[in-house]
Computed example of a mutant assay.
Amino acid sequence: MSHTHSLLWDTLMIGAIVLWATAGDVLIASALRKIGDLDRIRAVSGIPGAAMAVLGSPRFAFGVVCMALSFFSLLFALSHGDLTLIGPAAASLTFVTNAVAAKFFLGENVDRRRWLAAVFVCIGVALLAH
């Protein structure tokens, strides 16, 4: 495989991992916020009630599916690409996309320090790719 083709393939695989992981993280966080305080649910309904509150959430279930797709994308990418690029790039870029998604989809306050960290992560990933 040519270097250009290999880099394109690695980029697509990293993108799939990051996309699925970010979607899963956002969906699970959103579901748990909607469900509410699990300690309170557990106090009223016990552990089975808390488990049913979580497992009965379609948003949570879809988040788990997205996380599974991210995991299998990672396995596929590692079977075809270099661990030294795929692993760090996927983990780092997931950090960046989670910050963006948390800001825009969950309404979280992402401070300047986290944005600066995200910029440095992107610089690090660019250095890994070359």
Rank of each mutant, 00 (worst) to 15 (best):
V44G: 11
A68M: 15
L8C: 04
S45R: 15
V96C: 05
A118Q: 01
H5Q: 09
A16M: 13
P88I: 07
A129S: 10
I35W: 06
T4S: 11
S79Y: 08
A89M: 08
D37S: 08
R42Q: 12
A77K: 02
A51M: 15
L127T: 12
I86S: 03
T22Y: 04
T22Q: 01
L116Y: 07
V18F: 09
W9S: 11
S30G: 13
A23E: 04
L12E: 03
D39P: 06
E108M: 08
A91T: 13
K34N: 08
V44P: 06
V110C: 11
L78K: 07
F62N: 03
F72V: 15
A53S: 05
I123K: 09
A23K: 02
V65P: 01
A43S: 12
L74E: 12
L12C: 00
G46E: 07
L85V: 02
H3W: 01
G56E: 07
V110W: 11
H130Q: 14
D39R: 14
I17S: 00
V26W: 11
G49E: 10
R114T: 15
L7T: 11
S6T: 13
A117F: 07
P48E: 06
W115I: 09
K34F: 03
P48T: 06
V18I: 03
F120P: 12
G87L: 15
I14N: 01
L85T: 10
G15W: 05
V64H: 14
V100E: 05
V18W: 06
G63H: 08
V96P: 00
I35S: 10
T11D: 06
I35Y: 04
S70Q: 00
V96F: 08
V100L: 14
